[in-house]
Nucleic acid binder design. Structure first.
Lengths: 129, 129
DNA sequence: CAGGATCCTTTACGATACTG
DNA sequence: CAGTATCGTAAAGGATCCTG
């Protein structure tokens, strides 16, 4: 994106069609990141995934998987067993997204203490007023 | 975070309190990223910001600014002029967050074409069925 | 100018029930 | 097993009006 003011020459982040915005929307999706993270470790089946990602509803899981697959970030393989078996795995494209996400994770781990301290200061200042 | 399965030894991303999740939530916030990006360019006042970030409502802008300030990512300076003047600027902590966000932006710009192609394939495959 | 308070609509999401 | 469909609630967000 190059963070900056609107500029006709480069993608305008204010535009819903801006690539960065679309990716940010995906990253911002709690479940999408968790699913991608799990699949980065290796292929998993639907219900196994559901068990491992505690708290996700089956609706959100299937919805998240469909969107990730549609974007080419993960791959879905169905086997005609009885009952049917479906295995999800990370796609090459999705693999390339893992590093930037991890960069953000490292920022979070490195600076979270500062953020929390800032919040305490802010809340205390409010209290005083 | 280190994307991976739940593991008692490292922060559990499924936990709402996980630092990574909290940061991801913030980054996922459309307006927060845009505001931070604009402030990275230099200090701006409220209504100027509102004009530059096309499409943001005053409610969302003030709400976003408050959260960013609370997290220590930006700074708010009020001047007792008449009428009052308030200038927002990026804080040192916020500055350190710019790079990881830009990494994500670069990923988006680099791979968006692939994502769009994947979507077309996916949608066409559905159509065929 | 820089917001707070209110209302109202839209969306997200969980829970539940059903199917190939 | 791996989902889809439906429903109801809760939360997000825009529009509008008001104020120091």
């Amino acid at each position: 994106m190059k963070l900056g003011p609107a500029d006709a020459k480069r993608p305008n982040p204010y535009d819903a069609q801006c690539p960065t915005r679309q990716i940010l929307d995906r990253i911002g999706d709690k479940w999408a990141v968790l699913v991608l993270g799990r699949l980065a470790e290796g292929p998993v089946r639907f219900n196994q995934l559901r068990r491992e990602i505690e708290g996700i509803s089956q609706k959100m899981l299937s919805q998240t998987l469909r969107e990730l697959e549609r974007d080419g970030l993960i791959h879905r393989a169905a086997f005609a067993t009885v009952p049917v078996t479906v295995e999800y795995s990370i796609a090459p494209l999705g693999q390339t997204l893992v590093a930037p996400i991890e960069a953000l994770s490292r920022w979070a781990e490195t600076h979270m203490a500062d953020v929390i301290a800032a919040r305490l200061r802010y809340d205390r200042a409010l209290q005083a007023a």
